[in-house]
């Protein structure tokens, strides 16, 4: 078995075992930390598809994360107040059902990614980064100035949403939901990386013209990848909102976009489990260093610098070697 596969299996098993152990010993907080890792990792799995496989440096993935979050917030808010979201052309009620919320989050973030992708994917380099950043900030200001949904203060959702057959208020059960979705996201990403579509996407990252000569239009495959990428990050946003029982416009801010990108880079760009490793490291640093100093992000900054300068493959690359672009 390849070294990276073993490391991946270890990460997957570790992320499952630690909260299960914490459940047995009653350390609720550890379970919540693990849930946070799983959700952030899922958001980064989404970005990794665009950034890692497609070479699309999106600095606006907070848009999808936030849309997923607000999909949850708005649906749950209307369910809380028993007033429908809209009544024309049909009555659309709020809901507390996670499955419905996820579907809405996926559709909303997918549509947004399609629109943003169509407008930005013709650009490249710094222009693409700036264009995606601008769209992310547009959403940020839109929700800051929307008083109905909390404006700047955001919205608290008092009761966690429901999942059939599970008690979502039990931390370990919520963790299992998030973990399962992370695994599903990783599976999708793994399948895409080895499909002809994913291979063409990686080829286009290297040289778009060469891809055209074999009959593939780079714009189309990039757009498709961008949409799937946005949807996965959107789903993570809905989960994060449910974990925190709160949504706020900071989910849309460029800090969030940067944070998701940091997760990918720390863990290893284009590595299947890079986002998982990155999210685990980030949450651990946040937890440990956050207790030592309020300026813990400075340490993350220094670490990021070291990774970019000396360990381009990120955590996974340092452990497994730089040989493969994907697993």
């Amino acid at each position: 078995m390849r070294r990276e596969t073993i490391i991946n299996a270890g990460l997957a098993a570790g992320l499952l075992a630690i909260p299960l152990w914490a459940h047995v010993t009653g350390e609720i907080f550890t379970i919540t930390l693990a849930t946070r890792v799983a959700i952030l990792a899922l958001a980064a799995v989404g970005l990794n598809l665009a950034l890692g496989l497609g070479g699309l440096v999106s600095f606006g993935h907070a848009a999808y994360f936030g849309l997923g979050g607000y999909a949850m917030g708005i649906l749950a808010f209307h369910a809380q107040t028993y007033d429908p979201i809209f009544t024309w052309p049909f009555v659309f009620e709020g809901t507390k059902q996670m499955l419905v919320i996820w579907a809405v989050a996926l559709v909303a973030s997918g549509l947004a990614a399609a629109l943003i992708g169509m407008l930005t994917l013709h650009t490249s380099g710094a222009y693409f980064i700036m264009a995606t950043l601008a769209f992310g900030q547009m959403f940020y200001y839109l929700f800051v100035s929307w008083p109905k949904y909390g404006g700047e203060d955001g919205m608290a959702i008092y009761v966690r949403n429901d999942f059939p057959g599970l008690n979502t208020l039990d931390p370990i059960q919520l963790f299992v939901i998030c973990y399962a979705l992370l695994m599903a996201g990783l599976f999708v990403s793994w399948r895409i990386a080895r499909s002809p579509f994913g291979l063409a996407l990686q080829a286009a990252r290297q040289n778009a013209e060469r891809v055209e000569t074999v009959g593939i239009r780079p714009f189309r495959i990039r757009l498709a990848a961008f949409v799937i990428s946005g949807m996965i990050t959107g789903l993570a946003g809905a989960l994060m909102a449910d974990l925190n029982r709160f949504v706020g416009p900071t989910m849309f801010s460029w800090h969030t976009s940067g944070e998701i990108m940091v997760l990918v880079i720390l863990g290893g760009v284009a590595r299947l489990y890079g986002p998982v490793a990155g999210a685990a490291l980030f949450v651990l640093l946040e937890h440990w260093l956050g207790g030592v100093s309020d300026y813990w992000l400075a340490f993350v900054g220094a670490l990021l610098l070291l990774v970019v300068l000396f360990a381009r493959g990120g955590l996974i690359g340092s452990l497994a070697g730089r040989e493969v672009a994907h697993d």
Partner: peptide
């Protein structure tokens, strides 16, 4: 890309494979 789909295959000057992909992946792509 449309010319290629119509049935014109090109082996460009200077080889130019998709370097990060394996042989099999180059063919599959």
């Amino acid at each position: 890309h449309r010319v290629a789909r119509l049935g014109v295959g090109l082996v460009p000057e200077g080889r130019r494979c998709f370097a990060p992909l394996t042989v099999e992946e180059n063919l599959l792509a």
